[in-house]
Design a protein around this nucleic acid. Structure first.
Length: 488
RNA sequence: CGGGAUGUAGCUCAGCUCGGUAGAGUGCACGUCUGGGGGGCGUGAAGUCGCAGGUUCAAAUCCUGUCAUCCCGACCA
């Protein structure tokens, strides 16, 4: 069975699709633009979800659930918000089907038209703020720190598994505060939390920055983003946290009485990451042999493959090793399936991205050692049997660090700076990656650069140093460089 | 919604020009020899040829219509 995948150099896009398919992460579905997340893909999402959920709770947030359907009229209450999402909403217009009187099959019952049409949430700000209005009366009700894990739907033209699907899973946090300062602090806190998660757990380096007006969330005052670089040099927005000001509070009349018994509008934030992170994980670390997963997010960290012989001693030994590893909190699978040969299994678990593989055969038993292979570098070493648990424990930590350092180096190697448009376009065409350049701060310039080069401003880095320069496009004065790139 | 292509076994595809009993590889099932990097041999199950009409003694093949999917553009986490 030749389960080969297209190489990255040949066709990066096809390589990605091959990984998703052959590592068993997702399938296409009967519905255009939607995907079926298969058990292994979902297991990765569960690792992501569980860790983030823990981090949200550690910072004082609680979970709740709001409905899938939103009255159409809610969307239009915030002017920019409706502009941003109206074009991609699925709309529920009827509530009943009937048998087609003219033939077989069912049709929509024309008598079952809804009085007010409902939309399937593309995001939940509107229904949530409509609800918060009833929950908030006093400054004593604040802050309100709520998150929900949910699915949302945006009717996309072109989709790719995990990176962009019409329906996707995500978390969306929606918080209400009594002061502007506190709301900004909340949006920054989550921004930091996302960056920490990306780097510590996904081993994916990110640039923290704010979005330009043009790239900002519809209805936000400020959008903070974490931007990552994929292996083809394109940028991926991996998570966003928005300071919403009082926009939604005003649209939905969410007011509270402050300590001085005066009525004020509340200050708001919202923030989210989605199943897109699974796509980010794939495109950050994986190689031409398949998926590569950081140990902290691998559904199972170690696979033990017994090299079969007609006795049960190998299985006994494999189980002993498994117990020793599990005692250190390491997740382990023994593949004793007789259907496939060892060589097949080696390739298979590389495809699945298991960080560590242990080969155990008669030869090893005699020598009192095992063969340990790491997925990230493909190195194999023989390890003494009685040191196996601590060796693997250290190795997993080392792999986690190595993946992060490698990705960081890649980003550094593919980040350039440009001082005029000729240089800008040359870098973009020949090398790609991130381009640091001065920008005059106007939407007009941003759009012209986008039109001319297809590169957009990914973010204005928070740690950008103040340095006077000239806008790469207009030549006007600029005080800091921003990050340009082609983006997913 | 514009431009291009494709629908035949679970998957990848051949067959169509020139009409005549539905094919291959892979996967699947069973048996067997194997087993330290994607095994060998044998046997077997599996397809309303996207759908609907038409031409014909006869249609996967020719004609008309229709549906769906994929790729390229406009939109986007």
């Amino acid at each position: 069975m030749a389960k080969e995948i297209t190489s990255r150099s040949e066709d990066y896009s096809q390589w990605y699709l091959d990984i998703v398919k052959k590592a068993g992460l997702a399938d296409n579905s009967a519905v255009r633009g939607c995907m079926v997340i298969k058990p292994y893909g979902f297991a990765i999402w569960e690792k992501i979800r569980d860790q983030l959920d823990l981090m949200f709770k550690q910072t004082g947030h609680v979970n709740a659930y709001f409905p899938l359907l939103i009255p159409k009229s809610f969307l239009s209450k915030e002017a920019e918000h409706v502009d941003g999402f109206a074009k991609e909403c699925a709309v529920v217009t009827h509530h009943r089907l009937m048998n087609d009187p003219n033939g077989t099959g069912v049709i929509v019952d024309p008598d079952a038209k809804l009085e007010e049409e409902l939309i399937i949430r593309p995001t939940s700000e509107t229904i949530i703020w409509n609800t918060y209005k009833d929950w908030i009366q006093s400054y004593r009700d604040l802050p309100l720190l709520i998150n929900q894990w949910a699915n949302v739907m945006r009717w996309e033209m072109r989709t790719r598994p995990f990176l962009r699907t019409s329906e996707f899973l995500w978390q969306e946090g929606h918080t209400a505060h009594s002061t502007k300062k506190e709301a900004i602090a909340e949006s920054r806190l989550i921004h930091d939390l996302y960056a920490e998660f990306a780097e510590e757990f996904m081993a994916m380096p990110v640039i923290k920055g704010s979005k330009s007006a043009n790239e900002r969330f519809a209805g936000a005052v400020d959008t903070y983003t974490i931007e990552a670089m994929m292996q083809d040099g394109k940028a991926l927005q991996a998570g966003t946290s928005h300071f919403l000001g009082q926009n939604f509070a005003k649209a939905f009349e969410v007011k509270f009485l402050n300590e001085g018994n005066k009525e004020e509008f509340v200050w708001a934030t919202s923030w989210g990451v989605s199943t897109r992170l699974v796509g980010a994980l794939i495109m950050t670390h994986s190689d031409d042999d398949g998926l590569v997963l950081p140990p902290k997010l691998a559904p199972i960290q170690v696979v033990i493959i017994p090299i079969p012989k007609p006795n049960g001693v190998l299985m006994e030994e494999a189980n002993l090793i498994k117990k020793e590893l599990e005692a250190k909190g390491i997740s382990v699978k023994i593949d004793s399936d007789k259907k496939n040969r060892p060589g097949f299994k080696f390739a298979e678990y590389e495809m699945l991205g298991f960080p560590v593989r242990i080969g155990l055969g008669a030869r090893d038993l005699e020598r009192n050692e095992v063969e340990v292979a790491r997925r990230d570098t493909k190195e194999k070493v023989n390890v003494s049997r009685n040191e196996i648990a601590s060796y693997v424990e250290n190795l997993l930590a080392e792999i986690q660090v190595n993946l992060f350092e490698k990705a960081k180096q890649f980003r550094a190697d593919n980040t350039s700076s440009a001082s005029d448009m000729e240089e800008f376009e040359r870098i973009l065409n020949e090398k790609g990656g991130f381009i640091e350049a001065h920008w005059d701060g106007t939407t007009e310039t941003e759009l012209k650069i986008k039109e001319q080069t297809k590169a957009t401003i990914r973010c204005i880095p928070l740690d950008a140093k103040e340095e006077e320069g000239k806008c790469v496009f207009s030549g006007k004065k600029s005080m800091r460089k921003v990050i340009f790139a082609k983006a997913y």
